[in-house]
């Protein structure tokens, strides 16, 4: 059953991605991209990753769409024409990268494999000791904000500096 739902969601993802890249009206493309983010959030939820799903829903489906719409306000809704040779080069590059990724995927451990390195390295330590050491039942929160706090600090700094850079770029000269 859950495999069926997952397969349906993945087909939906592919369809929405195609709409997003092929729509002549960029407003439709932006909305399709938002729907794509929402479908992706459902995929994460179906895979048992509610925290990732939550982030994808608020950022991928919500914030990104609003920012694309705001950007569209400043430009045109129409797609500009790209000459055919460039299109073919782009298509070739996308297909080549896709093929490489597909081949690389075969090397990844199976999803849910308890013997895989991600499940045997530090994960058991976190899962066993989180509640005792941090009184936090949601191990994801404890890992993100305590055990791997450096990563989260740098992420926050990236968002902050990225936002500042965008703010400075968008500031108009008087």
């Amino acid at each position: 059953m859950s495999e069926l739902v997952l397969a349906g969601l993945l087909v939906l993802l592919g369809a929405l991605a195609l709409v997003a890249v092929s729509a002549a009206d960029l407003l439709i493309a932006a909305i399709a991209l938002g729907a794509y983010g929402f479908a992706l959030a459902l995929v994460w939820a179906a895979l048992g990753a509610p925290d990732v799903s939550f982030t994808e829903a608020v950022v991928g489906a919500g914030a990104t769409t609003v920012f694309f719409l705001a950007a569209l306000l400043r430009t045109s809704r129409r797609r500009s024409n790209v000459p055919n040779p460039q299109r073919l080069v782009a298509l070739g590059a996308v297909l080549a990268v896709g093929l490489v990724l597909l081949v690389a995927t075969r090397q990844l451990p199976l999803w849910g494999d308890v013997g895989a390195p991600p499940s045997t390295h530090v994960s058991p330590r976190y899962l066993e000791r989180t509640l005792e050491e941090t009184l936090t039942p949601n191990a994801v929160t404890a890992v993100v904000a305590d055990y791997r706090s450096y990563d989260t600090l740098i992420e926050t700094l990236v968002i902050f500096t990225g936002g500042l850079a965008g703010w400075l770029l968008l500031a108009r000269p008087r």
Binding site: P50, D51, T55, V58, G62, V144
Partner: peptide, 18 residues
């Protein structure tokens, strides 16, 4: 409620901004 349920600072920040 990030200690107990999915979510946390990042998601809360985006929702607040929304």
């Amino acid at each position: 409620h990030g200690h107990e349920s999915p979510g946390g600072g990042f998601q809360a920040g985006v929702i607040l901004a929304a």
